[in-house]
Amino acid sequence: MSEQHSVVEVSAKDLQGPGVVFCPNPKMTQWSTHPKVYVDLSHDGEGRCPYCGTVYRLKAGEKIAHGH
């Protein structure tokens, strides 16, 4: 039996620094269900929350700005 997880598509403006988003995010109905963690999308445009399994995916055509 496979477990279903939410998939959240994010745009570059949703990123909290160089290619990361945080989970839980404020749009979640139970946003305080686990500690805030940063999910790295910078390697392949996708990452998974280790607590709830939510997948965060960069929207098609969006680019991660790499600053130095």
Results as ranks from 00 to 15, higher is better:
12 A>L: 01
23 C>H: 04
13 K>M: 07
18 P>V: 14
54 T>N: 07
27 K>A: 12
67 G>V: 14
50 P>Y: 04
52 C>M: 10
28 M>K: 11
37 V>Q: 07
42 S>Y: 06
7 V>M: 03
6 S>T: 11
59 K>D: 14
1 M>H: 09
25 N>T: 00
15 L>E: 14
59 K>A: 13
16 Q>I: 01
59 K>T: 11
14 D>L: 01
47 G>E: 10
62 E>G: 00
6 S>Q: 15
31 W>G: 08
40 D>E: 04
61 G>K: 05
17 G>E: 03
64 I>D: 04
52 C>L: 10
5 H>W: 02
29 T>A: 12
62 E>Y: 02
55 V>N: 08
28 M>G: 04
28 M>A: 13
15 L>C: 03
25 N>E: 12
37 V>F: 00
5 H>M: 00
18 P>C: 08
50 P>A: 01
2 S>R: 08
49 C>N: 08
51 Y>T: 01
5 H>S: 09
3 E>N: 15
43 H>S: 10
3 E>Q: 13
44 D>N: 13
45 G>R: 13
66 H>I: 11
37 V>L: 03
38 Y>D: 12
12 A>V: 00
47 G>W: 11
52 C>A: 05
28 M>H: 06
48 R>H: 01
10 V>R: 09
19 G>A: 03
27 K>C: 01
27 K>L: 04
26 P>C: 03
53 G>N: 04
68 H>L: 13
38 Y>Q: 14
14 D>G: 08
5 H>I: 07
57 R>N: 12
60 A>L: 05
47 G>T: 06
49 C>T: 08
3 E>H: 11
43 H>W: 00
19 G>I: 02
5 H>Q: 03
44 D>A: 06
46 E>W: 00
10 V>E: 10
28 M>Y: 04
21 V>W: 01
35 P>M: 07
41 L>G: 02
52 C>F: 06
14 D>I: 04
49 C>S: 05
50 P>F: 07
6 S>M: 10
3 E>R: 13
11 S>V: 09
12 A>N: 07
36 K>Y: 00
43 H>Q: 13
41 L>H: 06
56 Y>W: 14
33 T>A: 14
32 S>P: 00
26 P>K: 04
49 C>Y: 04
61 G>D: 08
9 E>S: 02
29 T>M: 12
61 G>F: 10
52 C>D: 15
